[in-house]
Design a protein around this nucleic acid. Sequence first.
RNA 1: UGGGCUAUGGCCAAGUGGUUAAGGCAUCGGACUUUGACUCCGUGACCGAAGGUUCGACUCCUUCUAGCCCAACCA
Length: 550
Amino acid sequence: MKKMEINHFINTIIEEDIKSGKHSKVITRFPPEPSGSLHLGHARAIITNYTMAINHNGYFNLRFDDTNPVKEDAAFVETIKKDIEWLGCHWENLLFASDYFNEMYERALLLVRKGMAYVDDLSADEITEYRGDFTTLGKPSPYSGRTIEENEELFIGMKKGKYKDGSRVLRAKIDVTSPNMNMRDPIIYRIQRAHHQNTGDEWCIYPMYDFAHPIEDAIEGITHSLCSLEFEDHRPLYDWVVKHCEMPEIPRQIEFGKLKIAGAVIGKRHIKQLVDNNVVMGWDDPRLITLSGLRRRGIPSQSIQNFIISLGLPKSQGDTELDMLYTFVRDHLKLESPRVNAVLDPLKLVITNYPEGEVEYLDAENNRENEALGTRKIPFSREVYIEREDFIEVKPNKKWKRLALDIEVRLMHAYFVKANKIIKDEDGNILEVHCTYDKETKSGSGFTDRKPNGNIHYVDGSINRKAEFRLFEDLVLDFENKDIPFIDKINPDSLIIKNGYIEESINIKEGSHYQLTRNGYYSVDKDTTEALPVFNRTVSLRSSFKPKAK
RNA sequence: UGGGCUAUGGCCAAGUGGUUAAGGCAUCGGACUUUGACUCCGUGACCGAAGGUUCGACUCCUUCUAGCCCAACCA
């Protein structure tokens, strides 16, 4: 992504560090655990770390925090890389926490030798019990008094695989009575015989996040380790590790508030539930705000960048409405997308005074606001399709700016037409509308003698392509209501599929964007086939049209 | 209950002792219009509450209230 001017409290801190000479450049990182997909919330962390580095003469590392092999899967590494690349945040180094397992082990050994870590034989339940809770101070483990020699021998033994999984842990000796639970002699190594995606079976002990993370940052020379607020309580421990492990570089952790999106399903557990129950088409379903879902929906990554930057970097916690993102999406797509006609719910219009069998090709600009996109010819003949909602039998009020009996509208790029007859089936459904056109009113002819009642679009009745259009609504209804189980709040109509027609001339390629006139921005979905193109509505056009409630 | 953080209009968010309290989204009006789009105009705040300090407080102090996070051998 290109450089943008950014001003927030972290930027201020960084600028002071540069002014004071503490740092000459900024090195940051994004440290995902390869255990799930990235979503819009992660975009803030990625973009914040990325922009702070490139705006300050430095670089940004992508480092997978693969310290827990039982939860992680190499498959996520590729999807995460793809998402970050798509977001436009290029990493300088692709790294893994596991690259540093040796050094971490050595640093832990150093702690042991300094008498600042001990091997504990308590069970997991016992450790929890000894740790106390918010109101009860922790008690020292009966094993915390072991000698340095004993601890060293036991820890080396742990590493060598002498002990069973879960039988012992290495703990930092800090303060079991600290009001900060993280400081109550946190576990820093556990025994876990699990096959690791990068180190295989080389290790049977794995470091815990709180110990591993600061060491990773320090090794890479990360100057500012930017993360979300929930790690604020961990900062004393982060600093403790850097200091007592005697790391030569001292990174500084700074926390910012997470980005929360109103009404969005974000939890891995919930998304999995939706996927497993076929409520959504997969992790990349356009109704999800996973980065892959947003991409499939057709949201340009630049709009995500602009959205994130415009939000600033507060420490307060609020729910941001997706409308704000959509505004950036429309902004971006407005000039970029060709504008073409499509009819999602077709109603046949027969122009009775137009010669049968004749077709004429009319001029149409591809984007009235961006001439660079050129022009095209669109067909027009005796039968065309219009949107069913663009016709009503009797004009209801002055505000109605579409077609009705005895009312004349312009078919955009073509002629004025006036409806004069409705053909219905036995049940009263409108099958087709008959109208007449006025040759004098041809678009581009300069005709100004009378004004049409409105402008509607059409697709030619025979020269067209059938297409599927997918419209998306909220996945969950009554989102904030905690009394109803999640699964019972799912909107049964979150996906609306329409089958209609689109101009036949367009080039259908996965991911390409179009503005469908008077409707919205759409992009071509991966489900597209030669026989049936599939379009996702990325975002609708704004509309101030409000049908009067009857 | 102990610790940490937060609190500005429907939503997001600037603002760090003196301004008519920025801006964006949304809403509602209006102008324009071969997209009811775009564009352009207009539209809303006693700054969580109560006290205090001060000539003057959203900004400082005190107390209170509400929300979020922490008691994985997860990250």
